[in-house]
């Protein structure tokens, strides 16, 4: 760890603590995520291994860069490039312009498209995990849940994604899923950017489903073939005035092409949901104003 000057604390989580720091050799500003890894019960922490494995594999402009990993006593230090802020802080602490919002949306989808092209799932897309650099580049962060897509008929856990951004197929207990889980979360994030509050704020798994279906109306076999055979499928009764996501967003006076983008990502059936690449082809990104990446006005 002599290669880095450790500075003040930036944040704390259940997995450990993040410090600000500097690489002695060239003064590169870094964030040091110190995790307890020498778990005496099950060895090196599975999630930490996953995060290192994924970040060493996927290198892209819109994915946070893991500079180094340094072991220290019982723990590990994961050294990341220092980021200025995250989308949650930008969204609730400042007022990004339309062009900046478009930029963030494009960079989020570019990052996802890259991961998906390499058969990797992020599985925890939410505003707090979308980091923004000092140059205003949005990068996907926190790869603790990320993994490569399993082979066919191999089960993956349905316990991932933060509840508010968790897609209906996971809430119904699907164990074979695909890139749709990330694009649903992306849709939720973009809707939140437009609305300035989270789209579906459930308190439990069931409540989350109820919140989603209150707006979209419950799915049936015609809208989503195969839904009723999912492991935790529950039939929801039809509500009298389904609002649809489209009217909800239109009522909030979002630009029509922005609404189209979000609605495409928030299709209940994962098979008919837009992929990240489809979403990037939407007219939203070619219409004026053009997307930009501007340095954030407020940072840590």
């Amino acid at each position: 760890m002599q290669a880095y000057d450790v500075g003040g604390e930036l944040g704390k989580g259940q997995w450990g603590t993040v410090f600000r720091g500097k690489r002695v050799r060239d003064g590169l500003r870094v964030a040091i995520k110190r995790v307890r890894a020498g778990d005496p019960v099950e060895g090196v922490n599975f999630q930490v291994l996953r995060e290192i494995k994924m970040l060493k594999g996927v290198k892209h402009e819109n994915i946070v860069e893991l500079v180094d990993v340094v072991p220290q006593e019982e723990g590990l230090n994961m050294i990341f490039e220092l980021m200025a802020t995250d989308l949650e802080k930008v969204l609730y602490g400042t007022t990004p312009t339309e062009a900046e919002i478009k930029g963030y949306a494009a960079m989020l989808l570019e990052g996802l498209a890259f991961m998906h092209a390499h058969f990797a799932l992020h599985r925890d897309i939410k505003p707090a995990n979308l980091l923004i650099s000092f140059e205003g580049i949005l990068k996907l962060g926190d790869f603790g849940y990320a993994r490569y897509l399993a082979d066919e008929n191999c089960h993956m856990s349905d316990q991932c994604c933060t509840l508010w951004y968790r897609p209906p197929e996971l809430l119904f207990g699907a164990s074979e899923y695909g890139f749709g889980i990330d694009t649903w979360s992306a849709g939720c994030v973009l809707a939140e950017v437009g609305l300035k509050h989270p789209l579906f704020r459930g308190e439990t798994d069931l409540d989350q489903l109820a919140k989603i279906f209150q707006i979209t109306g419950p799915p049936d076999e015609t809208a989503w073939p195969g839904v009723s055979s999912l492991r935790k499928y529950i039939r929801f009764s039809k509500n009298d005035n389904p609002l649809t996501v489209r009217t909800l967003l239109n009522n909030a006076r979002l630009a029509p092409d922005f609404v189209d983008l979000i609605v495409g990502l928030l299709s209940l059936d994962p098979k008919s949901r837009d992929s990240a690449v489809d979403a990037l082809d939407r007219p939203f990104f070619t219409a004026l104003p053009r997307p930009v990446a501007r340095p954030p006005r407020k940072h840590l």
Binding site: E42, F46, L49, Y148
Partner: peptide, 12 residues
């Protein structure tokens, strides 16, 4: 270690 890396973790 390899079991964890290949997403097939086994108990210690």
């Amino acid at each position: 270690l390899a079991c964890k890396i290949e997403e097939k973790p086994r108990r210690i």
